[in-house]
Lab assay of single mutants.
Amino acid sequence: ELSWTAEAEKMLGKVPFFVRKKVRKNTDNYAREIGEPVVTADVFRKAKEHLG
């Protein structure tokens, strides 16, 4: 699991709890794919757009 900024964690907190774990995993995987060592708010937004 990658490191997350406080802002990205806050955004994740707005995701319904029953899918939060999956969203975190998918976002981590997306960040790795694009070469990001940390999940930022920008990476979170891009993952959301990319993953739907």
Rank of each mutant, 00 (worst) to 15 (best):
48 K>H: 12
15 V>M: 12
16 P>R: 05
32 R>I: 08
47 A>R: 04
49 E>H: 12
2 L>Y: 06
6 A>S: 09
45 R>F: 08
31 A>W: 01
35 G>V: 03
29 N>W: 11
6 A>E: 13
24 R>K: 10
13 G>W: 11
36 E>R: 05
24 R>D: 00
9 E>A: 08
24 R>A: 04
33 E>F: 12
12 L>V: 03
41 A>M: 07
42 D>M: 07
34 I>S: 07
30 Y>W: 07
45 R>K: 10
25 K>H: 11
10 K>W: 12
51 L>E: 07
25 K>I: 14
13 G>T: 10
21 K>H: 14
17 F>C: 08
24 R>E: 03
43 V>H: 02
43 V>P: 01
40 T>H: 03
45 R>A: 09
52 G>F: 10
9 E>N: 06
30 Y>L: 04
1 E>M: 11
2 L>Q: 05
29 N>K: 12
12 L>W: 03
20 R>A: 04
9 E>L: 15
29 N>V: 09
52 G>I: 13
25 K>N: 11
51 L>D: 07
11 M>R: 03
21 K>M: 14
4 W>D: 00
24 R>G: 02
15 V>Y: 14
15 V>H: 07
7 E>W: 04
4 W>Q: 00
47 A>M: 06
38 V>K: 07
4 W>N: 00
12 L>N: 01
20 R>H: 03
11 M>A: 07
46 K>F: 05
23 V>L: 10
16 P>D: 05
17 F>P: 09
27 T>E: 00
12 L>T: 00
35 G>A: 05
28 D>I: 08
26 N>W: 15
8 A>C: 02
34 I>H: 15
7 E>Q: 07
39 V>A: 01
46 K>T: 06
11 M>K: 04
32 R>Q: 06
13 G>S: 15
23 V>Q: 04
51 L>V: 09
40 T>E: 01
33 E>G: 09
35 G>T: 03
47 A>D: 01
45 R>P: 01
29 N>Q: 14
39 V>F: 00
40 T>M: 01
37 P>N: 13
35 G>R: 06
22 K>Q: 14
28 D>Q: 07
30 Y>R: 02
7 E>K: 07
46 K>E: 08
13 G>Q: 15
13 G>H: 12
21 K>R: 13
45 R>C: 07
1 E>L: 11
9 E>D: 05
2 L>K: 05
26 N>L: 15
43 V>N: 02
50 H>F: 12
22 K>N: 10
3 S>R: 13
2 L>T: 06
27 T>P: 00
44 F>D: 00
24 R>N: 02
25 K>A: 12
32 R>S: 05
43 V>T: 05
4 W>S: 01
25 K>L: 14
41 A>H: 04
46 K>L: 08
14 K>D: 12
25 K>P: 02
6 A>V: 12
41 A>C: 06
32 R>M: 08
13 G>K: 15
21 K>G: 13
51 L>N: 10
24 R>I: 04
3 S>V: 15
6 A>F: 09
40 T>N: 07
15 V>I: 11
22 K>I: 14
17 F>M: 11
1 E>C: 11
1 E>T: 12
41 A>Y: 05
25 K>T: 13
7 E>D: 08
49 E>D: 10
51 L>H: 12
11 M>I: 06
45 R>W: 08
26 N>G: 10
32 R>P: 00
6 A>I: 12
37 P>V: 12
22 K>R: 14
18 F>K: 12
23 V>Y: 07
48 K>P: 04
11 M>C: 06
50 H>L: 11
1 E>D: 11
6 A>Q: 10
1 E>N: 11
47 A>Y: 14
22 K>V: 14
21 K>F: 10
47 A>N: 03
11 M>Q: 06
